[in-house]
Write a protein that binds this DNA or RNA. Structure first.
Lengths: 161, 161
DNA sequence: CGTACTTATATAAGTTGGCTATACATTTAC
DNA sequence: GTAAATGTATAGCCAACTTATATAAGTACG
């Protein structure tokens, strides 16, 4: 069988399994505390990447977000219609577009982040102090984990099967 | 303005802001490491809730997942078609259906969890030991945080608290 | 107990955000 | 200078939500 992945409260089998359950539930929890009207996850993640790392090509963004190139074309189109990004010609390649975040985009990101941080602050106020400290102490680890290179685990592209 | 949510690496303004950024990126990261074909987040979260807490009504599940009642009817229909849940009459209320997880559903949950834990194990192996320990130490805190009552932050309609 | 209100779920129709397949434009190789 | 490769866009499809509404069952009160 497994080692804690069952139905009940996550037993700690030594770590990974319980952490995995916790992260899985965290993903749903983050969705639940996000107001409905907000821009979708892929678009915001893309915008965040552009703000953090500078202009990038559509196809690079698609690879980074693990969606198809036409999918990313759509994301960029929507972001551009909202005024959050601009397409610019790539000086070194006439086929490519460099997607650049605008000031409006940065403003939106900041506002969204502030709103989410406020919600988080409220929710985190409901748990015991030692748990709160454990979470805050994990910030650096989370940042490092999620920054880890794409590094295909194996899945995602075997569609031709 | 904000308190550290600006450009650059997450400065620690006391914590919440950097943690919020990290969690936001974590949500996208979890999506990226999830194979495309997998069942959607809402359905899996619903299945997990049923497995962890027992049979529930459609409308209660909808409130829990913060989607509309017709939306949850659709989720349950799909889960039932996959054989993961069953609709049963509520003995105390002829209008309501009690949604119950099946053995097939539990098996699927366990398999999915094992697969995700394996990916997490690999990814977590890439970060330094102290970060890994910090993450594992936050498992309980994450579980507690995400178990926190729905508690409407402000948007959408009022859930029956 | 019958009529009106309320509540639980289902259905209908529309929107959104992804997908595959393919067209188009440009760059690269020979 | 053509042919193949590459970056983006378009077309058409589908899944998973949304709101509005219909149906059926419970509840309250004359």
């Amino acid at each position: 069988m497994n080692t804690g992945g069952g139905a009940g409260p996550p037993r700690d089998d030594g770590g990974i399994d319980g952490l995995s359950t916790a992260l899985e539930r965290l993903a749903s929890w983050l969705r639940r505390i996000t107001p409905r009207g907000e821009y979708d996850l892929v678009a915001m993640s893309t915008l965040d990447a552009l703000a953090a790392e500078g202009p990038q090509r559509i196809s690079d963004l698609a690879a980074r977000e693990r969606i198809s190139q036409p999918g990313m074309t759509g994301v960029v189109t929507r972001l551009a219609e909202a005024g959050f990004v601009e397409r610019r010609p790539d000086p070194t390649d006439g086929r490519a577009a460099l997607v650049t975040v605008t000031d409006t985009g940065r403003t939106h990101l900041a506002a969204r982040h502030a709103a989410r941080a406020a919600v988080l602050a409220e929710q985190i106020g409901r748990i015991p102090e030692d748990h709160r400290r454990a979470l805050l102490a994990a910030t650096g680890a989370l940042t490092e984990l999620t920054a880890s290179a794409p590094h295909d685990t194996d899945d995602h592209k075997d569609a031709t099967a």
